[in-house]
Amino acid sequence: MMKLTDRDWKVFRIDEIFDDISRPISRSKNQYTSGDVPFIASGSSLNGAVAFCTPKGDERLDDANCITVSPVDGSCFYQPTAFLGRGGGGSSIIILRSLKLNRNNGVFLAMAVNHTTSKYQYGHMATSDGIKREKILLPVNENDQPDYQFMADYECELTQQKSKKYLNYAKNQLTKLGSAKPLKPFDELKWKPVCVNDIGDVLSGRDIYARERIDGQLPYVTSGSTNNGIGYFVGNDNKSKDCGVISVNRNGAVGEAFYHPYTALFGNDCRKLRLGLNDKYKYAPFFVAAMVSKQKTAFSYSRKLGTNRLKQLKVMLPVDDQSQPDYDYMEQYVKNKMIQKYNNYLRYLNTI
């Protein structure tokens, strides 16, 4: 395993490393219809992609092989494909380009830049000129110049290790899931609005304020829309600790719901939904969580989803001949989807 500590390191200004630092043309994702071209904005996850769009006519895309920087929080990502970049205004992304940049060293450089730019926030956003003056730490070769080959080799080795680890994980998961089974399509099912209070218990969480948080390994679920709603990993403990429950955001990304088959702590900006299911249903709760999230458009920051509203909320679920939620169908549907996804991932790993 290559080690970062085996190298000499040196500080460089960003404009010494990148030949071109610019912003995209003025554009907003709301101007586009759905498609397959990533729209890169100031997101802090999913490589900054906030949507996938169809370009307009002969519109030129922003070229691949660059690093994008969010001026809002400094998030940095290497972009391996052409994209539509968010432009116009102070929150438009900043694009870094270099003739030395490639797919292998791009992720390494993006992480190096992010160590510096992560200090930016909404009240102190990055600018193109400011980014140029920022300094980053890079490994150097015998000529005291950035060692791009080491960066590429290190990233390739790390990627191979991660791929091998995931390959083993995916194969083990497929063994647990068994074989996919044929199911009726949704339009042939009987559906019914079911009250949340009739399928489970709604419980409150408990906040852990920033001054109280201790770094640790236990997921602390807040009210985000990504990463299963997990905001932090903490060493705290309190009565909100639970396992096998659905979190439903009452604040923040109101209405987003995630199933947590692992032990976690839950903040008061979400509610816990504990379904009345026996242990044989390990995957059906994922289906229920997705259907709860379908109702999020009925709520907003000014119309929160508190305990009483969540109890009274009705979600559409497939039902059996007795008009009861068909958890057997939901269980197998989710298993089929997971089997499909794992096989897709394995096929993808075989192509890289």
Rank of each mutant, 00 (worst) to 15 (best):
N172R: 15
D237G: 03
K280F: 11
K341S: 05
A284Q: 06
L265T: 03
L275Q: 01
E155C: 14
K280C: 12
R86P: 00
K304R: 13
K337A: 05
R274E: 02
V37T: 14
T222I: 09
M2A: 10
D237F: 14
S128C: 15
E16L: 02
I246W: 02
N30L: 15
L346Y: 04
V69Y: 07
L46Y: 14
P38K: 06
K294W: 08
M2W: 15
F258Q: 05
M316V: 11
A289M: 02
N102P: 01
G205I: 02
N143H: 09
R347T: 09
D63M: 06
N278A: 13
Y262Q: 10
S225H: 10
D129I: 12
M125S: 07
K335C: 10
E157G: 08
E134F: 02
D58C: 09
N47H: 01
K29S: 14
Y209E: 07
T127R: 00
L109P: 00
L4P: 02
M151D: 00
Y32C: 07
G88D: 10
K132H: 00
H115F: 04
N343I: 08
I94K: 01
K184R: 11
P38T: 08
S44M: 04
G87W: 03
A41R: 12
I131S: 03
S323N: 13
V334N: 04
V334S: 02
N102Y: 03
D58E: 15
K184I: 07
Y348L: 14
K29M: 10
N268G: 11
S45Q: 12
D237N: 13
I246F: 02
L349K: 02
R60M: 11
Y345S: 11
N278D: 13
L183D: 10
I136Q: 05
M316G: 06
W9D: 04
V315T: 11
Y345C: 14
Y148F: 14
D147S: 01
A64F: 09
R206I: 05
P193D: 08
S45A: 13
R206Y: 03
K294R: 15
T54R: 11
L101I: 05
N343G: 05
A112V: 06
K29Y: 13
I40G: 06
R303G: 03
F266L: 03
S44C: 05
A82W: 06
D201S: 12
D201E: 13
T351Q: 12
D15S: 09
K119R: 14
F39A: 04
T263E: 08
P219F: 07
T68K: 03
K314G: 07
Q312H: 14
W9F: 09
S44R: 04
G43W: 04
T307N: 07
S42Y: 05
F77H: 00
T263V: 11
G87Q: 01
L46Q: 14
D215G: 04
L346M: 09
V334E: 05
C270I: 07
D328M: 08
M125T: 11
V248D: 11
T116S: 11
S45T: 14
C270M: 12
S75R: 06
K162Q: 14
N47D: 15
V248G: 09
V72S: 07
L46T: 13
K162F: 00
V50L: 04
R347K: 15
K162M: 10
R271Q: 15
I131F: 09
M151G: 06
S92W: 02
N350P: 04
